[in-house]
């Protein structure tokens, strides 16, 4: 095993252990019982929380900011693809050239979206006021990770050590700051679906005008 693969592996184990701790802590903290009788369907509420409520048609934070929303979607997709790819590259899976170049092009686009979001955060006064160093570091680490995945796919093994080091650093950083939302996002959507589902607010009434 190469040194960079070993570094990646150790980082992965630390990351998984930390996130596992967060998950366990969350589960062990338990849910305060709600004694008020429900007036809606909780399961339908949770399902809607992950589906309809996320739709750019319904979510104001999406439809009022479509370019940012679209950039965010591409950026997140690029992250998921990069995560999948690093495991495949780790297992020495070789891709056809056309496929490699196609994915690399997409990852370049997604990294550009990440850069755009970073620039927006740095330039816009209201976002700067809201941000902390963790926001910039998280964004940079993920963008660099996507960029190096693209370069590795396009130019081969010369970038592989850099990719694994970047991935390792990213994994080590994930439990520290906002990137934990890869875990808490799902918990938050569940909690919100539970709240609005229980009260009969989600899913919304069909004849309510948007």
């Amino acid at each position: 095993m190469t040194w960079f693969s070993l570094f990646f592996l150790i980082s992965l184990l630390i990351c998984l252990a930390s996130l596992g701790y967060h998950l366990l802590f969350l589960l062990r903290s338990g849910q305060t019982p709600d004694f008020a009788p429900p007036s809606g369907n909780i399961r339908a509420g949770i399902l809607y929380s992950f589906t309809g409520a996320m739709s750019p048609v319904k979510k104001e934070s999406a439809f009022l900011h479509l370019p940012t929303y679209a950039a965010g979607m591409v950026y997140h997709l690029g992250t998921f693809i990069s995560i999948l790819l690093i495991f495949l590259l780790w297992a020495d899976v070789v891709f056809p050239i056309a496929l490699s170049l196609g994915i690399a092009a997409f990852l370049l686009a997604s990294a550009s979206c990440g850069t755009g979001i970073l620039i927006k955060r740095s330039v816009k006064r209201n976002l700067r006021a809201l941000s902390n160093p963790d926001d910039y570091i998280s964004n940079t680490l993920v963008t660099v990770f996507q960029l190096l995945t693209a370069l590795t796919l396009a130019f081969g093994s010369v970038f592989t050590p850099w990719l694994f080091v970047a991935a390792g650093l990213l994994l080590l950083y994930i439990p520290m700051g906002k990137l934990k939302h890869l875990l808490y996002f799902f918990a938050a959507r569940c909690q919100l679906g539970l709240f609005f589902g229980r009260r009969g607010v989600w899913p919304p009434h069909k004849n309510q005008t948007p």
Binding site: Q31, L127, K178
Partner: peptide, 15 residues
């Protein structure tokens, strides 16, 4: 769990 979840979830997107 509810409190911990919401306290840890904001990503400062400002949207």
């Amino acid at each position: 769990a509810k409190l911990i979840t919401h306290l840890n979830s904001c990503v400062h997107c400002g949207l």
